[in-house]
Design a protein around this nucleic acid. Sequence first.
DNA 1: TCTTGTTATGAAAACGTTTTCTTAAAGTGG
DNA 2: CCACTTTAAGAAAACGTTTTCATAACAAGA
Lengths: 338, 338
Amino acid sequence: MEKVNIKSVASVAGVSIASVSRVLNKKENVNPAIKAKVEEALKTTGYRRNLQASGLRAKHSYTLTLLYSDPSPSYVVDLQKGALAECDKQGYSLNIFPCNHRNDDFLERITDLVKHFKNDGVVVAPPISDMAEVINLFEENDIPYTRISPYIIESERPSVFCNDYGAAFDMTTYLLSLGHERIGFIKGTDGHSASKNRFQGYKDALFTQRIEFDESLVEQGGFSFDTGEVCARRLLKSDNKPSVIFASNDEMAAAVYKVAAQLKLDIPNNLSVVGFDDTPMTKFLWPALTTIRQPIATQAKQAVNMLLNYINDKSNEDLQISFDCELVLRESTSIYRP
Amino acid sequence: MEKVNIKSVASVAGVSIASVSRVLNKKENVNPAIKAKVEEALKTTGYRRNLQASGLRAKHSYTLTLLYSDPSPSYVVDLQKGALAECDKQGYSLNIFPCNHRNDDFLERITDLVKHFKNDGVVVAPPISDMAEVINLFEENDIPYTRISPYIIESERPSVFCNDYGAAFDMTTYLLSLGHERIGFIKGTDGHSASKNRFQGYKDALFTQRIEFDESLVEQGGFSFDTGEVCARRLLKSDNKPSVIFASNDEMAAAVYKVAAQLKLDIPNNLSVVGFDDTPMTKFLWPALTTIRQPIATQAKQAVNMLLNYINDKSNEDLQISFDCELVLRESTSIYRP
DNA sequence: TCTTGTTATGAAAACGTTTTCTTAAAGTGG
DNA sequence: CCACTTTAAGAAAACGTTTTCATAACAAGA
C-alpha cells in the first residue's frame, strides 16, 4: 500500500501542496476548477489527513476530554457512548478523565489537568459541572468547555440540560392519577441541581392538582443506597405512612425495596415505588421498577457538538439546549387501594 | 510562561539539540558529563516533550486502544480505571473502543479499526479476547496486542488471566463446608472461557469432597438476567430442588432472587444464593449477595503494562500472568438446614 | 499606457521532535 | 609515528501538515 500524503495528492491533482491544504481546510478564494481537481485526487488516492502533523503545525490536538466524577457506572457508560459517537463523526478522539469529586486530591487532579492541558476542549458532566471552582479554572485558563446539567447558568458558555423538573412533575401527576394522595419523596444530595429540580417538579405537581404539600412526607437523602434506606425506614415506620414513595434516583428506590421487604410490605400492592434514572439495575429488581429515563447519551452527543462548534467558531446561537426525559412504566406501581 | 522546547533546553545546557534528544530517549554512548548537564537543564526548564512532534517523526502515537464489548457497565468502568492508571503512569493516552460483539456490524467495525489503526497497540477484553477472527486480524496486520482472560492460549502474545477456576472451586468448597450437598449451578454463556472455568471449578470441588456430581442440578444459562430466571425456575421447581444455587454471575444470581421471591422462598433461610463478579448491584440486593470479586482493574493495569513492554521491546519473559479472585461473603448464604 | 490594487497560486518556512549524516577527536595496531 | 577504525557530538534532513510570503495574472482607475 503506497503511502499517501498531501504531497502525493498534490502531484496527482497537478497543483501545489498549499492548494490541497486550502481545499482540505475549506478556505475561501480557491478556484473551483482547482478545487474539483483536488477533490477528485483526494478520492482516488484515499487520502487521510495525518492528525499529528496537522495538529503540530496548527496547534490543536483533535482530541476532547470528557470529565466526570464517577456517578453510577451505567451513567458513565452512556455518557461515553454519546460523546464518542459525536467525536467519531467529527474526526476527533476522546480522552476520558474519571475522578472522584469527594476525594482529597480532587482539586489537585483538576489543577493538573488544566495546567498541562493538551486537548482542544472539555465536556464537563454533573456533578462537576456544578462546581464553580472547577469551572473557574477552565475559564481562567481559556479552556473551551461545555457543561451537562449545570446549576449555575450565569456562564455564557453553551450547556445542555435535561428536564428533571418536568419529568418529576409528570411522574407525580401520574401517581396522583392512580389515586395516590400521600406521596412520599426522598430528595437527592443537597445542593445538587438535579435534586432541587426533581423536588420542585414534585411539589408543583401537587400544587397543580390541589393536593396539599406535606413536609412530613419528604426526607433528605443523598443519592446513595444507604441514605435511601434510612429515609425509607423513616417514611414507612411513621404513622403517616405514604402509599407510594418517589425516590430521586433508582439506587434509593432499591433501598425502598429492601425496607419494604423487611416490613413485609408487598410492592406494588401495599406500597408503590418509583425511581429516577432507569439504571440497568431496575430490570433486576422485582417487581421491575417504574422510573424515568434521561437521554444521557443524547445529551453527551449534543454537548460534544456544541463544544466543537464553539472551538471552530461556527455561529452558535442556542447556548442552552434542553432534552426531555421519558417515563418508563413498569410493575412497581398500582392504583391506590386504601 | 516561556515556551520550552528541546531547542531551549539545549541552549540552557550548552549542547546540541541532538544530544538532548539522545538523553531523553536514553540512547547509549552519551558522555556522562553531557548527560548530567542536560538532565539539569531539563529540570530547571520544566521541559515536557511534545508528543505530536515526537510521534510524527518517530511514527508512534503514545496512545493505546482499549477494546471491549459492553459487558456490564461496572466491568467496563473498572477496566478503564486500571488501564488508565497505567497509561497515565507511562505517559500514554487511552482510546476507548466500545462495541457489541453481537451486533451485525461488529466485524465491520473491527475491520475499520484495524484498517485505519493509528495507535500503538490494543488491549483486548473478554469476550472479544476469545474471538479468533478478531485476534487474527491484529496478528495479520502486525498490531501489538495483549488479551485479558483469553481462552485460546496458543498465541505467543502476552495475556493476563484471573483464576476463575480456583475461585469457583473455593466458593463451592465453602458451600460444602456450610453443609450443603445439593448445590445448583447455573452456567454462563456456552463457549465463553469464564463459563467453562467456573463450571470446572465447581465440579472439581465436588469431586475433591467426594460429593457425587448430579447433572440435574446444572442448568445452561447465558450470563443474562432473563436466562438466569429461566434456569432458576427450572431448578427450584424440580423435585430435586437444591439448597443453594451458585450462579456464574451476579446478574443471574439476581434472577434467582426474583424467582425465590415468587416461590416464597426466604433467602438465606430456605435457599442460599451466590454469584460471581461482585458488581455494585450486589449491595442493592437484599439480603446482600455473597459473590466473588475479580481484580479487574489490576488485570487491565497489568495488560497495559505488558503491552507497553512488548511495544518497547523490553525483555518480556512471563507471557501469561494470573490473578486470584476474592470471595466476598455477605448475607445470602446460611448453613444447611434440612 | 502606466501605475496601483486585488487575487489566486506556488514556494518555502515553520511546528518540535528523531534520525541520519558528517566530522573531529580519540583509540588501535603495525 | 602513521594509517585505520571507532566513538561522540553537532549540523542538518526528515516527518506531514499549515501558514506566511512572494509573485504572476489580471482588473481598475487615471
